[in-house]
């Protein structure tokens, strides 16, 4: 087990390092803004005095390295700063206190939960569906089913998320009023109702993710079925079922886990557009709104959360595929 543990620890360390560097990149990018936050908040017409007051209160007169370390330290403790949009800066100047509502964390937390719910529903539909379809396409490769699946998934991958979203709205909400086209979710909603409102955005995401996942599964399985040891298993007179279950699946685990993790990472980007289309109160929509009104701390925080989720999922894929590799699990 020694070498596996070492490799996994190495990857973990590398992942954390990447996350750290990414946080620097995000912080630096924001600091490329012309002028500074204070100027951005108050606009061009602000008096020098007011700008300076905010600068002091936000600690903008400190050197960038110190500000970065403070920001990072706060972020690690769950404090992601103060949202410009919510804080009433007229009162804020000089008073030195920030109301609870204005903190970025309190804004993000419920929306983060909503987004996780959406991603969870999507994954619950997409993962079993795409694995089944992908394995079937690999087993019956070059059949009519496989060719049809190829064209359909290619089309689905090529379409922008909003195209798929509007088509689903057209058929499932407008022409046949089965599902709501707007996902107005609020706290304290029952699970059933919540699920119903989430279904349409989840289906849209499923369409995109399933296409990706299915193609990758198909490629991984075909690759696997071409291995000489599969041919050997067939030549031993084993039944097709046994060849698949005993010889293909144990080796397919690593690539399939990889495919799932990579696509969940892909979901993160897809969620932004879909949330906007369905006005789903998740972190993606919050991010886009903050971008439009240039709410810098909010943008920074959302960006960090998206990047962290993305890095962690990729890391997870990496580690799981190492752990499930028999060559590494049973070293010489």
């Amino acid at each position: 087990m020694g070498s596996v543990t070492r490799i996994v620890l190495q990857r973990l360390a590398l992942g954390l390092l990447t996350l750290f560097v990414v946080s620097i990149v995000i912080f630096t990018a924001v600091n490329l803004l012309p002028g500074d936050f204070a100027q951005a908040i108050l606009g061009q017409g602000a008096t020098e005095e007011a700008v300076n007051a905010i600068r002091r209160d936000l600690g903008l007169d400190q050197p960038p390295v110190q500000r970065y370390l403070e920001w990072l330290g706060d972020a690690l403790q769950g404090d992601l700063g103060t949202s410009f949009a919510q804080a009433n800066f007229a009162n804020f100047v000089g008073s030195g206190t920030v109301s609870e509502l204005a903190s970025v964390t309190s804004q993000i937390a419920p929306r983060f939960a909503n987004t996780m719910f959406l991603a969870g529903v999507t994954a619950a539909i997409a993962v079993p569906l795409s694995l089944t379809l992908g394995i079937l396409a690999a087993l019956y490769r070059n059949s009519v089913f496989d060719k049809l699946a190829n064209i359909t998934t290619l089309t689905s991958i090529s379409s922008p998320e909003f195209f798929l979203a509007y088509i689903l709205i057209l058929f499932l909400a407008v022409l046949n009023p089965w599902l709501p086209s707007l996902s107005n979710i609020y706290a304290g909603m029952g699970f059933g109702e919540r699920l119903e409102k989430t279904l349409l955005p989840a289906l849209t995401l499923t369409l995109v993710v399933t296409a990706h996942m299915m193609r990758m599964t198909r490629a991984a399985i075909i690759n696997l079925l071409a291995s000489p040891y599969i041919e050997m298993a067939r030549l031993k007179g084993l039944s097709p079922m046994r060849v698949i279950v005993r010889h293909a699946l144990p080796n397919a685990l690593a690539p399939i886990i990889n495919v799932i993790a990579l696509n969940l990472a892909y979901l993160i980007t897809g969620v932004v557009v879909v949330e906007v289309v369905f006005v789903y109160p998740g972190i993606g929509q919050l991010f886009v709104d903050s971008v439009k009104i240039r709410d810098i701390p909010m943008v920074q925080a959302c960006c960090l959360i998206f990047a962290a989720a993305y890095i962690l999922l990729n890391l997870l894929a990496d580690i799981l595929s190492i752990v499930s590799n028999p060559r590494l699990r049973h070293p010489k």
Binding site: P228, Y229, P250, N251
Partner: peptide
């Protein structure tokens, strides 16, 4: 088979 290394299942 020619390549025993590839024809034995690694798992």
């Amino acid at each position: 088979a020619q390549s025993a290394a590839a024809s034995f299942n690694p798992a």
